[in-house]
Amino acid sequence: MKIEELVKAVEGNVVCCHENLKRDVELAFASDLMSDVLTVQVDKLVLLTGLANMQAVRTAEMSDLPAVIFVRNKTVSEDMIRLAEDNGIVLIESPYTLYRASGVLYTMGLKPVY
């Protein structure tokens, strides 16, 4: 599934790295716990989180995640955008709750990790 399809599905606002919207993702992981995200060892994974801070983007950087969806209208800061740009990580803001965003993407066929 292309990242741009996820954006549409969660009524998302892409704040960075539009050039990578055609990249493929296959799995999703929803968590506010970055230590938990760091234990996941798969590729093509998108993170859904309510944690809008630098560490969420750093975690995406270390885990090679192509995209992060920030739920519940959490705003992405300039610092976060700069870091994401350095690494080509697509950052998406969504008005949906973590539950709703996860549900919508699950129904679309985005697979869970476990």
């Binding site: 506010d32 716990l33 970055m34 230590s35 938990d36 760091l38 234990t39 944690l51 801070n53 560490q55 969420a56 975690t59």
Partner: peptide, 15 residues
Amino acid sequence: EMGFGAGMGLPNIKE
């Protein structure tokens, strides 16, 4: 609040 401190760090480093 930063998303850490769940007691998973050291085991994950070992892993």
